Simulated assay, not measured.
Amino acid sequence: MPLLCAGLSAHAEAPQPGTTIPDDRGTASLMIENDLFGAGTDRHFTHGTAVGYTTREYLPSETDPIAVVANLIPFWPHGARARATYSLGQNMYTPEDITDPNPIRDDRPYAGWLYVGGGLIAAAPDASRSDTVLLEVGVVGPASLASKTHKQWHKWFNFTEPRGWDNQLENEPGFNVIYEHTQRIWKDELGPGLNVDLVPNSGFSLGNIQTYLSGGATLRLGRDLTTDMGPPRIRPSLPGSAYIRPTNGFNWYVFTSAGTRLVLRNIFLDGNTFRDSQSVDKRYLVADLQSGLALQYDDWRMTYTYVIRTKEFEQQDKIDKWGAISLSYRF
């Protein structure tokens, strides 16, 4: 997948909005996505949690290992500054009816995905482009601990007990190699302190967990639109920024995005790769629509995204809706 914070750079006492001074701080983020935050349901992609850390910017001339490795990548954009990014996450998937302990043949299977990720981000000096290369590795099945997490969460909050996790996908190690490209192609000033921009994106994922091609665009309206390239999300999703750049004072923007994926492999619908398991007939074209708000103050950024996803498999009776919340801190 796709994704605002203020502070003072060590290279200048008061950098102005849109500054291209190298950012000398990293960003830590917490992302939570749940259908309870959107349609109030408990089905399909029902929950995701991810924590991540993205380093400061490294100039191409630096001798730090992050900059050295970035310069060895053949397609690394000329003059781009490098950031390393790391993540840990867990996703949970369920059928619509979580009270039935029996396999539900016409709905998606129970599945969990526990993973770690690491990669590099190429940031353009003028903050207009971002390229991410990422490797995620993890496990699907009981070893993902999704069953225990889901049941405990529902017990704590007195929600309906999920009774079908005995039918989840079998244990399988997995990986995704992900590339995401975002680039601002248009920006305009609508008035003092009010800007608008358009940021298309494209990318792909290769792996036994997810294999797809993606493309889309984000339209934003707000104060300073150079501090990130959109709200962070849990993949698969429209790409956003895992980092935030400094700005002065309170910052904000609203956004709306649309994107589509050509899905060739989705283990959570296709079932296990090397073992017999429950599966459904996936749809090869899936679209996401999203809108929301990003708020930034000092070294903090908070975003809310409302997501609508088209049907992912043939037996699905209606689209999915959920909410995504992220909290980021720059230090």
Rank of each mutant, 00 (worst) to 15 (best):
P15T: 12
G18P: 11
A122N: 04
Q210L: 15
L285P: 00
T132N: 09
L36W: 03
P142L: 06
A14W: 10
T19P: 05
D97K: 08
L114P: 12
F75A: 12
G207S: 12
V137K: 03
E170L: 08
G38Y: 04
L198V: 15
T303P: 00
P15A: 12
I319C: 00
E172N: 07
F255A: 13
V286C: 04
T227A: 15
T63R: 09
Y115Q: 00
I121G: 07
W156E: 04
A50E: 13
A111R: 07
I325T: 08
G7S: 06
L134N: 14
Y329E: 00
W165K: 01
E136G: 02
T305R: 00
T149Y: 11
G193F: 12
A258M: 15
W113P: 05
G215V: 04
D24L: 05
Y253A: 09
R330Q: 06
R220S: 13
S128H: 13
T305D: 06
K311C: 05
D270N: 09
A127C: 09
P22T: 02
L190W: 14
D298T: 10
H181V: 06
T160Q: 14
I234T: 10
P101K: 01
L30Q: 02
V116H: 03
D64T: 07
G26S: 11
G249M: 05
A143Y: 05
D64N: 11
P2C: 09
R83K: 13
G141I: 14
G203R: 09
N71K: 04
A10M: 03
P125C: 02
E170R: 09
P236W: 02
L59T: 13
G240Q: 02
N71A: 05
A70S: 14
K282Q: 13
Y329S: 01
V69N: 01
V196I: 15
R283Y: 01
Q183Y: 02
W300A: 11
D317Q: 15
G26D: 12
Q296N: 14
D288W: 12
L3S: 14
P200C: 04
V69A: 15
L59E: 13
N266Y: 02
N171M: 03
E180I: 00
R301D: 10
A111M: 08
F157G: 02
R233K: 09
E312C: 03
Q16Y: 08
Y243S: 13
A67P: 03
L194E: 05
G271V: 06
L114E: 09
A14R: 06
T20K: 12
R245P: 00
L221C: 04
W252A: 11
D224R: 11
E172S: 08
T256E: 04
E96F: 04
E62H: 00
T49M: 10
Y297L: 12
W76Y: 05
R129K: 13
Y115S: 13
G38A: 11
S279D: 10
A6G: 15
L289N: 15
K318F: 11
